[in-house]
Simulated assay, not measured.
Amino acid sequence: MGTDAAGQTDEQLLEALRGAAEGIHSELARLSDESVATPSELAGWTRGHVFAHVEGIASALARQAELARRREQADLYDGGMPARDAAIEAHAGGAAVTHRERAGAAVDRSVAAFADLEPADWDAPVRFRRGVARDAALALWRELVIHRSDLGTGCTQQEWSDAFCRHLVGFLEPRVPEAREFVLRPASGEEIRLGGGSDAVVLEGRLQDLAAWLAGRPVSHGAVRAEQDGEAVPLPGIGPWPSAMAIQ
């Protein structure tokens, strides 16, 4: 699931990871002790929580890649979600310099781990989602790009690339409720059909807004419009985010 990244090669995916990492580093460079405690776009999370999560998930995905090179496997998080959540709470309130050091090092480690993969390593199995190393790299791409926007510092989904958005909506297809079909009609580009149900809803808007809406992120009023049988309807409900832990 989610391995079709708009036809990108592994080298192009690696370049996308490097660009996403630069975005996180630019946010860390501007971080102050005051802004650490500023609420993010995620309910109940400060910017410090977001950076603590980036630190944790980047380290976890780096380990998936490092083990894949050795044809070994381990769970995404030692101790599962409780340990992940506890680490975020423990590190969220750290000073700006601490986030720069810890999150920055974790991001660099993760990009380096994927850069070290040989061509055959990208298809090496990993425990994460019972996939391959490429799935872990795509997850890192999602985490770095989306959570940069979650910081609420001015970077929004409008900066997401078309390639990223197409990958994201494909990855999030499981959020389409059973028996429904979402027909995405971006303002530019080809139509995208998600879900296999007979109850079809047409969703129109910029590709970036459609992707953000499906990701549960805020979009401007009217940026995404729903239509069914030629009539305007409220935006449909969506299911939960595909859990990284559910199939481990």
Results as ranks from 00 to 15, higher is better:
Ala120Gln: 10
Met81Ser: 14
Val97Thr: 14
Val97Cys: 07
Gly93Pro: 09
Arg30Met: 01
Ser40Ala: 03
Ala179His: 11
Leu235Thr: 04
Ala113His: 10
His167Leu: 13
Ala223Arg: 01
Trp122Ile: 07
Leu210Ala: 09
Gly2Pro: 13
Gly80Pro: 06
Arg71Lys: 14
Ala87Asn: 12
Asp199Arg: 12
Ala74Glu: 02
Ala96Gln: 06
Ile192Met: 04
Asp209His: 10
Val219Ile: 09
Ala29Gly: 10
Gln228Thr: 14
Leu138Lys: 00
Tyr77Gly: 02
Leu235Met: 08
Val36Ala: 07
Gly154Pro: 01
Trp141Leu: 14
Ala246Asp: 15
His53Pro: 02
Ala112Glu: 13
Thr46Gly: 01
Arg63Lys: 11
Glu190Trp: 03
Ala21His: 06
Pro186Trp: 09
Ala62Phe: 01
Asp75Lys: 15
Ala137Val: 01
Arg63Asn: 10
Leu210Pro: 02
Ala232Gly: 08
Ala95Met: 03
Pro125Glu: 06
Ala103Met: 13
Arg102Tyr: 01
Glu11Pro: 03
Ser26Phe: 13
Thr9Leu: 07
Glu11Ala: 15
Glu190Asn: 14
Arg129Met: 13
Thr98Gly: 13
Ala120Cys: 04
Pro218Glu: 07
Glu72Ala: 07
Gly80Phe: 07
Pro240Asp: 03
Arg193Asp: 08
Met245Thr: 11
Asp135Met: 02
Ser198Trp: 05
Ser220Asn: 13
Pro177Gln: 12
Ala163Asn: 12
Leu235Cys: 05
Thr9Ile: 04
Ala37Asn: 13
Gly104Lys: 11
Gln12Glu: 14
Gly237Arg: 15
Arg109Trp: 08
His53Phe: 07
Leu28His: 07
Gln64Ala: 03
Gly237Phe: 12
Ser35Val: 07
His91Leu: 11
Gly237Leu: 14
Gln158Ser: 14
Ala20Trp: 07
Thr46Trp: 00
Arg47Met: 04
Ser26Leu: 15
Glu34Met: 03
Glu55Ala: 12
Leu76Arg: 12
